[in-house]
Amino acid sequence: MEVLRLHNLQKSFGSVRALKSASFTLNEGEVVALLGDNGAGKSTLIKAISGVFPVDRGDIYVRGQKVSIRSTRDAMDLGIETIHQDTSLAPDLSIARNLFLGREPVNLKWLGVFAPLDLAKLRDAAAALLKRVGISKKLDADALVSTLSGGERQSIAISRAMQFAAKVIILDEPTNNLGVEETHGVLRFVKEVRAAGHSVLLITHNIHHVFQVADRIIVMRRGEIVAEQTVADTDLLTVESIITGADMSALLKETRAK
């Protein structure tokens, strides 16, 4: 079933056409990898979906409904959660406080921003969540995020997205700067996320990781989607050549023919 559909998204910054045209569909319980070199338009595309800036033209549909995403809050409310490696968590806050940042459980709600945090609920919910995603053994909900490793931080950020029942989880370079062990941990986590019924849009430079977790691959070049293939139908070398544009004409023909 279709969860997210983009139709002809376009975005320019001054005279630079960062996104010439992008259309694709993301289905339920599917991991789609978005590949491309630096400047291919990947981050412009995900910023548009996650509400960082509006697109110039084009439509976004969530579960078949046309939506307008004007802010990150809009995207979150529609069930689209974006996780950037360095910008997802506040290191000086505890795991529990990070998990509920912006959606804190409070008592006396009428006090608005001055409402007291429901600390017991915060702690319990955080502990339950860590347990559910299978990382409670190692981590205490009261631990500061600054004491965690990069992989643990990724897991926390992804757990948070799952917590709010996100339909679409966008992972922006989730394995950058991670060790081998930690990378495997995060990739395993992505599979669990899919098993739990969430859809994942994975942005990465590392093609090897893509082949381990993704169902489908979308390749961007110079602001356009130049290829879209299921992982089973392609191989590493082919994808690599599409990204670099080494043998574009033949591959484009192949894609268009599909």
Binding site: S71, T72, R73, M76, T82, H84, D86, T87, S88, L89, A90, P91, D92, L93, R97, N98, L101, G102, R103, E104, V106, L111, V113, F114, A115, P116, L117, L119
Partner: peptide
Amino acid sequence: YVLHYAKLGNWISAIGSNRNAAVARGV
């Protein structure tokens, strides 16, 4: 009270700790 027990305090610390993370959560 505000800094350590209220919702606002959580926001204040988060903004100082990692502004982008806070903004991404709708703070």
